[in-house]
Design a protein around this nucleic acid. Structure first.
Lengths: 157, 157
DNA sequence: CTTGACCTTGACGCCGGTGTGAAGGGGTAA
DNA sequence: TTACCCCTTCACACCGGCGTCAAGGTCAAG
């Protein structure tokens, strides 16, 4: 199939596909007239890329997964390089979450300090019921237990 | 004082100060030779900007705080516009945290699925002691209680 | 006078993942 | 042939907060 069809079936723009090729993630065969030619396996590759992008991976992060698939593995994540990237991303995400939690606390503190009467939680009624230790909350709570260590380095600055 | 001194005292680059001025956040008087002239109150403004940037505010977000200070208020956060921005940022931060938690779960799930024996928490030993309900963890737990509602809209895409 | 530290404005670079447009060739149906 | 859609490559635009040159003006010390 040509780029337009792949783009539509994969739900991405043709521009994006050309960009993936330019980054070496999605090499395309060429027809005699210069048109790119793709097959079903390419659709799979694009799906892999998109799902990784959706969880915050960069294209560079996605590279080992794509290579893994092209090497014949069933899952893009089943190669050691992919696992390494996943672990690194996990640590990055943890660091981001901890940074955001700190920031949230700072903003909230400043808000309550300079505006003591302010209703800090205008959406309280819409939020989840106040029952404690719901699975979702457990997930958030447990988050800080593992993953990246609580290093003293700060982000942004 | 001139821009170099303010930059050093505030711990920012002169380039940053010119940028703030260009954005209308830090108007400067001019000496006869065209040099920018600042005083102590400007140092305060820069400090306000930096502390807001440090918690994830944009310069646009910082504007009402700076205006508030220039209007003579003691705290940049004590004006209604500032409070509105703070609340909005709080909601944004909550949304980002929830998105990151979802992503973390997805990455972790995919990792355990394709690599069941993988040690998911290589840094467990370095992390905080496993004693439950430490203040820090409490803060993280309480995070999802208030703030932005659990709206169905997703980020990214 | 020269040197050198400081100042000015203007403008391009960066990062990532595209969107968008230009300018043109290919292939097919009416 | 015309019309029309799909394809090609090239290249600028975007977002935010600056970094970093370029080319030059200002001012005090030696």
């Amino acid at each position: 199939m040509r780029i337009g069809e792949l783009a539509e079936r994969a739900g991405v723009s043709a521009r994006a596909l050309r960009y993936y090729e330019q980054q070496g993630l999605l090499p395309a065969r060429r027809a005699a007239n210069g048109y790119r030619e793709y097959d079903e396996s390419d659709l799979r590759l694009v799906a892999e890329i998109r799902s990784l992008l959706a969880v915050g991976f960069t294209l560079e992060d996605a590279r080992p997964f794509v290579d893994c698939l092209r090497a014949g593995h069933e899952a893009g994540a089943s190669c050691p390089e992919s696992v390494a990237v996943s672990r690194r991303k996990l640590a990055e995400i943890d660091a981001e979450i901890r940074a955001l939690i700190r920031r949230r606390a700072e903003v909230a503190a400043q808000l309550t300090y300079t505006c003591p009467g302010c209703d800090l939680f205008p959406a309280e009624a819409d939020a989840a019921p106040p029952r404690a230790d719901t699975p979702r909350r457990r997930a958030a709570t447990g988050l800080l237990r593992g993953g990246a260590k609580l290093s003293p380095r700060d982000d942004r600055r």
